Computed example of a mutant assay.
Amino acid sequence: MAEGNRPARLPPRWFIVTFWKVHRTLNKMSGGRRFLWKPGGRRGWGALRLTTVGRRSGQERSVILGYLEDGPDLVVLAMNGWGPAEPAWWLNLQAHPSALARLHGQPEQRVVAHAAEGAERERLWERWREVDEGLDEYAARRPSPTAVVVLSPEAAA
């Protein structure tokens, strides 16, 4: 339970979707220079821009995601704003694991994605739990487990 024994509260779905669309648009309008941040501070997590290849269209698709660092790897949750469907970017990565990630103040880097499993997933889920105390309650709203996605630098993959 969240603070005060109240269930973790989420904003309405329309707000979550709108917020991330506006965030992505502002990042694009700034030439990718703004609206991304490093992990830490009051949020605990950072924001990156991930560009995948559409599994059906073959076209580039970009999204802004929260992330944590795990050594050279970036760790994101395939949560789709805690909605029931898998996020399109995760479906795209399952079809085409290579993508581009842009972090605050850095050029784009090529990454390769995989779903963390077993002990790796448990360890990384716990890292997310440290920065988001309502994580388990949010995840319980989804009909299937939330994938923990590891983005490794392509040279190290």
Rank of each mutant, 00 (worst) to 15 (best):
R33D: 14
R33S: 09
R34L: 02
R34N: 00
R34T: 00
R34G: 01
F35G: 07
F35Q: 08
F35W: 04
F35L: 14
L36W: 01
L36N: 02
L36Y: 00
L36V: 01
W37V: 02
W37P: 08
W37G: 12
K38I: 00
K38D: 00
K38S: 01
K38H: 02
K38Y: 00
K38G: 00
K38Q: 02
K38P: 02
P39C: 08
G40P: 11
G40I: 04
G40V: 04
G41N: 08
G41C: 05
R42A: 06
R42S: 10
R43Q: 14
R43G: 06
R43D: 13
R43E: 14
R43H: 13
R43P: 02
G44S: 05
G44W: 08
G44E: 01
W45V: 06
W45Y: 14
G46D: 14
G46Y: 00
A47H: 03
L48G: 03
L48H: 04
L48Y: 10
R49T: 01
R49K: 13
R49Q: 11
R49Y: 13
L50M: 05
L50D: 03
L50T: 00
T51V: 15
T51M: 14
T52L: 08
T52M: 07
T52V: 10
V53I: 09
G54Q: 12
G54I: 09
G54E: 14
R55Q: 06
R55A: 06
R55Y: 00
R55W: 00
R55S: 04
S57L: 11
G58H: 05
G58L: 06
G58C: 09
Q59M: 11
Q59F: 01
Q59V: 09
Q59N: 14
E60L: 15
E60W: 08
E60C: 11
R61V: 04
R61S: 10
S62F: 05
S62L: 09
V63R: 15
V63N: 14
V63I: 08
I64Y: 10
I64D: 15
L65C: 09
L65F: 04
L65H: 02
Y67E: 11
Y67V: 03
Y67I: 01
Y67P: 04
L68G: 10
L68N: 13
L68A: 13
L68D: 15
L68E: 15
E69H: 03
D70M: 09
D70T: 01
D70F: 03
D70A: 14
D70S: 15
D70L: 06
G71E: 14
P72Y: 10
P72M: 11
P72G: 09
D73C: 14
D73W: 12
D73K: 12
D73F: 13
D73V: 13
D73E: 15
L74K: 07
L74C: 11
L74V: 12
V75R: 07
V75M: 09
V76A: 14
V76Y: 09
L77M: 12
L77V: 02
A78I: 01
A78Q: 05
M79E: 11
M79I: 02
N80Q: 12
N80S: 15
N80A: 15
G81E: 10
G81I: 01
G81K: 07
G81V: 04
W82K: 08
W82S: 06
W82Y: 14
G83N: 15
G83Q: 15
G83H: 05
G83S: 13
G83P: 12
P84Q: 07
P84N: 05
P84K: 02
